[in-house]
């Protein structure tokens, strides 16, 4: 099966410090993947590279059937090509209502002229309600996002990610600040989405990763240390030494 995203031989240095070191990674069009690794392993930086925030010093990143390179595209173009991202720290537009946040994310034309003429149709409205329902924010639609709790902001951001209908979802620590029940709900949601899309989840919580029940990639010092099922990688001596052993 051909891969949706292929990252190969990517290296990034910040002031001589190699945050990503000859990293190779790929994921299929309908696959769930967890990335684990110690703090500073380069997990977020990896997402920065794929979404165009950070340009690598060397290596290639290709996306889609035609294996188009993402390296020359701006962040906005990459997002329009179908890469969605949820940030580690919840980033929603705090001065805007939950409805407005979701409307911004909703899949639709993005150019200024088209947005100027955009008016909410009943279909958009019911889509927003359905999304809010899905993440338990249905009663909060008219509230400003800044008033939501940390966990609710996480949910809002997940809903925004879904609203974009991306082909690849990069989800950075979705469960931080969530209760156990919410975590379980998040896992279900991610597993469900991954039936039709590619989903990459970064998470520190091992229980969470176990419930995802998917292939796991362990990052360490900017490159892949091990890859396989959770049981497989947790038995790996290197992984135990650098990551699990410390916990």
């Amino acid at each position: 099966m051909s891969q949706l995203l292929e990252v190969s031989g990517v290296t990034v240095s910040f002031d001589g410090f190699r945050a990503i070191n000859n990293l190779t990674f790929s994921i299929g069009p309908a696959e769930l993947r967890a990335i684990i690794g110690p703090n500073g392993a380069g997990k977020s930086t990896f997402m920065d590279i794929v979404t165009g925030k950070t340009k690598p010093d060397s290596g290639t990143v290709t996306f889609g059937e035609k294996s188009a390179s993402l390296l020359k595209l701006s962040e906005a173009k990459i997002a329009r090509a179908g890469v969605g991202r949820k940030f580690q720290r919840p980033t929603v537009f705090e001065d805007q209502t939950v409805t407005e946040n979701l409307t911004l994310a909703l899949k639709a034309a993005r150019s200024p002229w088209r947005v100027l003429g955009w008016r909410s149709k009943p279909a958009d409205h019911s889509r927003i309600e359905a999304l809010a329902q899905q993440v338990g924010l249905a009663d909060h639609l008219p509230r400003k996002a800044g008033e939501l709790s940390h966990g609710q902001k996480q949910w809002l951001e997940i809903a925004m990610l879904l609203a974009q209908e991306p082909r690849l979802l990069l989800v950075d620590e979705p469960a931080a600040g969530m209760t156990l029940a919410e975590r379980e709900k998040t896992t279900e949601l991610l597993v469900d989405i991954a039936k039709t899309r590619a989903v990459v989840v970064v998470e520190h919580d091992m229980e969470f990763v176990r419930r995802l029940n998917c292939r796991v990639t362990v990052l360490h010092e900017g490159s892949v240390l091990a890859e396989g099922s959770l049981d497989h990688v947790t038995k790996n001596q290197d992984v135990i030494d650098v990551y699990l052993g410390r916990g």
């Binding site: 701006s74 329009r80 705090e94 947005v115």
Partner: peptide, 23 residues
């Protein structure tokens, strides 16, 4: 309208707006 929403979003956090696909 939505245009106003986009520009207020740019005012508060332009990097985030880029990742939603807006130029």
């Amino acid at each position: 309208g939505k245009f106003g929403s986009v520009i207020r979003a740019i005012r508060d956090d332009e990097a985030r707006v880029r990742f939603l696909g807006y130029s």
